[in-house]
Design a protein around this nucleic acid. Sequence first.
DNA 1: CGTCCCCTTGAATGAAGTCAATACGCGTGG
DNA 2: CCACGCGTATTGACTTCATTCAAGGGGACG
Lengths: 244, 244
Amino acid sequence: MNPVVRKLELYTRLSADDKAALERLATARVRQFGSREDIVREGDTPKDVFMFLSGWACRYKQLEDGRRQIIAFFLPGDLCDLNVFILREMDHSVSAITPVTLAEVSRETFDETLLNRARVTQALWWESLVNAAVQREWTVNLGQRTAAERIAHLICELFLRLHSVGLARSNTCDWPITQIELADTTGMSSVHVSRTINELRNLGLIVLRDRQLTVSDLPGLMRLAMFNANYLHLQHEGAYLDVN
Amino acid sequence: MNPVVRKLELYTRLSADDKAALERLATARVRQFGSREDIVREGDTPKDVFMFLSGWACRYKQLEDGRRQIIAFFLPGDLCDLNVFILREMDHSVSAITPVTLAEVSRETFDETLLNRARVTQALWWESLVNAAVQREWTVNLGQRTAAERIAHLICELFLRLHSVGLARSNTCDWPITQIELADTTGMSSVHVSRTINELRNLGLIVLRDRQLTVSDLPGLMRLAMFNANYLHLQHEGAYLDVN
DNA sequence: CGTCCCCTTGAATGAAGTCAATACGCGTGG
DNA sequence: CCACGCGTATTGACTTCATTCAAGGGGACG
């Protein structure tokens, strides 16, 4: 099933018609990007909404002297800035981490298709409010948590997010990000990321190898990270669907 | 003039009628909060949109063990989460820094009044996209910048934002935040904030006393912080109004 | 006039970064 | 098939930056 539909259905019930409309949007203009390829660059004029269908991507910003901060991860089912086109110019870049498939939807198509579908519109707002909440939590993560807590927190978040779109089997999921990318995400050096991951391994919380992550002790990891899932706002109308 | 109107006019031209409508919203249900008083608390059910009319406020999150991170500042003219009511529960708190005046607008009133005012709606989206961009920039700030750069960057941002709503006279503005709050914002200890501010003073970049900030050398401060104002998206349709 | 909060400064400690060497896996091309 | 190079991960030693602890000063306010 289309991961965007799957994700929005987490929040609200969609009619068959709603789903079909979303499905059409997600199949009309599909594009592929290679691993580590830029999808949009800072300074570009924003044109389309992106619906991420497969693979991992990230938002990032780069300082003049080369320091780079990853600002967000896009997983299948995620959407990118419903209203960017209001702004004249992108203030950040988006890049593929793995090979990525996404659907581009023009502003016009997007508006026409969804404007009078109240439930879809509401679900889209929910999605973008959750994105904002995630961004806030990342601020807390960088500002207050220690190295180990930061990494642990990020792992909890991504694991739960993957779970919510069916991309984690029991306690295992893909983990395509390198330690360098993890460093650029958590604001630490890659050397220290390596040491910190080892710490988590030695605590028996995770197993990480061959780009596969196993969370051996999710409660323990959450405790260490002081992870409170409330900011993901999974307690919603459609939550009952989680069981399926 | 109402700072919300002033701010939205930065972006787009509003008709006299639009302005009057906003003015009505901003005067109907006005509330006052004392210095350091909580305005909403994590866990509350979101009800209203807030329009900040005077004073400074902040969003913050607190970890179980007491560590606190300030996530955003609200200045006069700022709005708070147009769509929060979609979410069941607040995932963060909002607190006054100085005495604060704000207008509460219920979801219904908000929708009724603005839904068919296209320019106002667009301006409100612009406002919330800029908020998101600010949040992203804070992520970069915490993740990549050094102590001095962080403080310098924050000063640049707040100074420009105050300027854009007419709350800075030439190179001076109010600076009501304590060093402890600055520490909770920049993820450092208050001791180190003190030292870092002294560093900026000694470089001749700022003068800060009696809750008044003077930016003696804005270009220098921006250079130090690697401050790029693009994320504030001030290059918009209504920018010509800045001259007045 | 005392108390509380905020700011400042010094000295000791601790966390994370840098530098550097090594190891491993993977793909490419000889 | 093996050699090579490249990107990634790991580990140790050292340095740098920021925190913590502690003490003192100053202003606001009851």
